[in-house]
Deep mutational scan, measured.
Amino acid sequence: KFNKERVIAIGEIMRLPNLNSLQVVAFINSLRDDPSQSANLLAEAKKLNDAQAP
């Protein structure tokens, strides 16, 4: 279950337009470290993406 959620979360994070490459890598590394947190990490990535919108 967590592996599928992690793959989906990674794909979504990679498509967030307002994150820089270091932020994307940090979120992906966090997902690798704890796949059970996929939903929480994706939500945090989306919040950061929205906050950094031009």
Results as ranks from 00 to 15, higher is better:
N20F: 06
V24Q: 05
S30R: 13
N3V: 05
I13H: 00
L31Q: 01
L31I: 13
V25D: 08
N3P: 15
N29S: 13
S36G: 06
R6A: 15
K1F: 06
A45S: 02
L48I: 07
R32Q: 14
E5F: 05
A53G: 11
N29G: 07
E12Q: 10
E44H: 05
Q52E: 03
A39G: 11
A45E: 00
A45Y: 04
L22F: 11
A9V: 10
S36H: 06
A43V: 07
K4V: 04
I10D: 02
Q37S: 08
L22K: 12
R15W: 04
A26C: 14
N49R: 00
D50G: 08
S21M: 12
Q23I: 04
S30E: 10
L22Q: 13
S36E: 08
K46R: 13
A53P: 05
R6W: 15
I8S: 04
L48M: 07
A9L: 08
N3I: 11
K4F: 02
M14H: 05
P35N: 05
A39I: 10
D50I: 08
I8F: 06
I13G: 00
E5Q: 06
N49K: 00
K4W: 14
R15K: 09
F27L: 06
N40T: 10
L16E: 00
D33M: 11
R32K: 14
P54V: 07
A45V: 02
Q37M: 09
R15S: 11
L41P: 00
E5T: 04
I13K: 00
A9C: 05
A53N: 07
N40Y: 10
I8Q: 08
M14Y: 05
K1C: 15
L22S: 12
D33R: 07
A9W: 06
F2A: 15
E5Y: 04
A51N: 10
A51W: 08
Q37W: 06
D34N: 09
P54K: 09
N20T: 13
N20I: 06
G11R: 11
E44P: 00
Q52T: 05
A26N: 09
A51Y: 12
A26I: 12
E44K: 06
P35Q: 05
Q23L: 04
K1P: 12
Q52R: 05
Q37P: 03
S30M: 13
A9K: 02
R15T: 10
F27W: 02
L42K: 03
R32I: 14
N3F: 08
S21F: 13
R15E: 04
A26M: 14
P17F: 05
E44N: 05
